[in-house]
Amino acid sequence: MLYLEDLHVGDRFISRAYEMTVDEIKQFAHQFDPQPFHTNEIEAANHPIFKGLAASGWHTSAVTMRLWTECFPVAYGLIGSEAQVRWPRPTRAGDQIHVEVEITEIKPSKSKPDRAIVSYTTETLNQNGEAVLLGNTKILVFSKNYRPDL
């Protein structure tokens, strides 16, 4: 587990690759984002923007979250306080995506010295190095001195 003392501006974390499958794309979309360009290859092929089946941006975000938890294991969890996300291109079935995180700022709390807000950028890249998600996130990170029971 990583604590506040373990983190520095410029630190980078890179995840493993994760393959997006047709079945998973459709399953997620049917449950959470039921639009034809996420659920139906025939309709998706005729879509003027996507021109083929595309994963929901929220599905790409959910996989990004999974990969964050694996490559950036912060003590007490990734407790988000703010996020900004863009999807510059669709994630497709067969894409092997991975996450690259870089810490950009560490802002210690003025009133609680056992914690800070850590800002980081995220690039979720496909197998061709093309960004399918770009994000800026702020999380609460605790020091080794943090005592939740006090």
Rank of each mutant, 00 (worst) to 15 (best):
D33P: 03
I42E: 14
T69F: 11
M65G: 11
T39K: 00
G57W: 00
F72V: 13
F37D: 01
F32Q: 03
S61Q: 01
A62H: 00
E43H: 03
M65C: 11
T69G: 14
H59W: 04
A62E: 00
A55M: 01
T64L: 15
N40P: 04
I79R: 12
V63W: 03
S56Y: 01
T64F: 15
V74T: 14
G52V: 08
N46K: 15
F50V: 00
P73M: 07
W68M: 13
Y76V: 12
G80Q: 12
G80P: 10
S56D: 05
S61L: 01
P34C: 01
L67Y: 07
P36S: 01
Q35F: 04
G77P: 08
C71G: 15
N40C: 09
H59I: 06
P48E: 06
E41R: 08
F32I: 02
M65E: 11
T60L: 08
A45I: 05
F37V: 03
I79V: 14
H38L: 08
E70A: 12
H59D: 02
E41C: 06
S56H: 01
G57P: 03
P36T: 00
G57N: 07
L53S: 02
E43D: 09
N46Q: 13
T39M: 06
I42F: 06
P36W: 02
F72M: 12
T64V: 15
D33K: 01
P36V: 00
S61E: 01
Y76W: 11
T39L: 02
G77L: 09
F72I: 15
P48N: 06
A75M: 15
C71W: 14
A55V: 04
P34G: 04
H59S: 07
A44K: 01
P73T: 09
H47W: 03
A62F: 02
A45Y: 00
I49T: 12
H47A: 08
Q31L: 12
P48Y: 06
A45E: 09
A45C: 02
I42S: 13
N40Y: 04
S56N: 08
P34Y: 01
R66Q: 11
W58I: 08
I42K: 09
F32A: 00
T60R: 11
H59P: 04
T64I: 15
F50C: 00
N46H: 15
H47Y: 03
F37M: 02
G80S: 14
N40Q: 12
N46E: 13
I42L: 13
E43W: 05
I49E: 06
H38C: 02
L53D: 08
D33R: 00
L67T: 11
A44W: 09
I49R: 05
A75Q: 12
W58K: 04
P36G: 03
P48A: 08
L67K: 09
N46R: 14
L67E: 11
H59Q: 12
E43Q: 11
K51M: 12
G80T: 11
T39G: 04
F32N: 00
P73F: 13
T60H: 12
T64H: 15
A54T: 07
L78Y: 10
M65K: 10
T39C: 07
G80F: 12
S61R: 00
E70W: 09
G80L: 13
I79D: 15
G57V: 02
E43M: 12
P73W: 11
R66C: 06
I42W: 05
A45D: 06
W58H: 09
A55T: 02
L67I: 10
E41H: 05
F37A: 01
T64G: 10
A55D: 06
A44V: 06
A44Y: 02
V74Q: 10
L53F: 08
